[in-house]
């Protein structure tokens, strides 16, 4: 999937560093994400990949360096300013490993909650958008059920629809299929592939290398808090340059 070189930068990370106490969890991260780009981040556990994308929507705070998100021509730098954070979160959607649907609300209410209370949309309009998105992820008939009544794959698709209800420009995925039974992984990946085809900017942390090969514009390998290697999937999988990358790939690509 080619990306026009003229596309604007939507996320810029410069020398981002983060510590948990004394433990250095992100080291000198430099990253530029263009609009429409699909980036897959992989690496061993503890490498900081989840921490990295969680810093982008300020679920985690970085201590050094800068993170700038640009949408609709406006550039906002992430800082302690609450207004900045809220503005960024309106444009950045996130899908979690453990789905995190709100169990006390119906599926429809899960989807319409943020549009009604954050974007101040009238209820009918929000519900129309929600139903159209549920159709897109192919479970419109579950609208009035509760999350506990759905399977894992259905819940994750609802979670994707919920994030999309806010019409974000960027979507972050934190290991979206790791908590699913194997037979449900495909239905979620299918939704993500469709989303990619429609031009959404996506940062996906995952172990699904098949998805990386078919959809990603760039694959990034992280280890011990640093970006070790990155490149287009064909070159990344065929000719990994770094020793650590080779070790990791040999561990996860089994026949």
């Amino acid at each position: 999937m080619a990306v026009l070189n003229g596309a604007s930068t939507v996320i810029q990370l410069d020398q981002v560093n983060k510590w948990y106490g004394q433990f250095h969890v992100l080291t000198d991260i430099n990253l530029q994400v263009k609009q429409g780009e699909k980036i897959v981040i992989c690496g061993p556990s503890g490498s900081g990949k989840s921490t990295l994308i969680r810093c982008i929507n300020r679920l985690e705070e970085h201590q050094a360096g800068s993170i700038v998100v640009s949408v609709d021509g406006k550039s906002i730098e992430l800082s302690n300013d609450v207004k900045n954070v809220e503005a960024i979160r309106k444009e950045v959607g996130m899908v979690f490993q453990s789905f995190n649907l709100f169990p006390h609300l119906t599926i429809l209410d899960n989807l319409t909650l943020a549009p009604i209370w954050v974007k101040k949309m009238p209820k009918k309009e929000a519900e129309d958008i929600a139903m159209s998105l549920l159709k897109r992820v192919r479970i419109p008939e579950q609208a009035l059920k509760y999350p506990g009544q759905l399977s894992g794959g259905q819940q994750q698709r609802v979670a994707i629809a919920r994030a999309l209800c806010m019409r974000p420009q960027i979507m972050l995925f934190d290991e979206p299929t790791s908590a699913l039974d194997p037979e449900m992984v495909k239905e979620v990946l299918d939704v993500m592939v469709e989303l990619a085809k429609e031009g959404m900017t996506m940062l996906v942390v995952t172990h699904e290398m098949g998805f990386a090969r078919s959809v990603a514009d760039r694959v990034i390998f992280m280890d011990r808090g640093e970006i070790v290697e990155q490149g287009p999937p064909t070159e990344f999988f065929a000719n990994p340059r770094n020793e650590r990358t080779r070790t990791f790939l040999s561990q996860i690509l089994h026949h």
Partner: peptide
């Protein structure tokens, strides 16, 4: 941005 793979030192 170049398309070549980059690798850490």
């Amino acid at each position: 941005m170049s398309q070549a793979t980059e690798s850490a030192p």
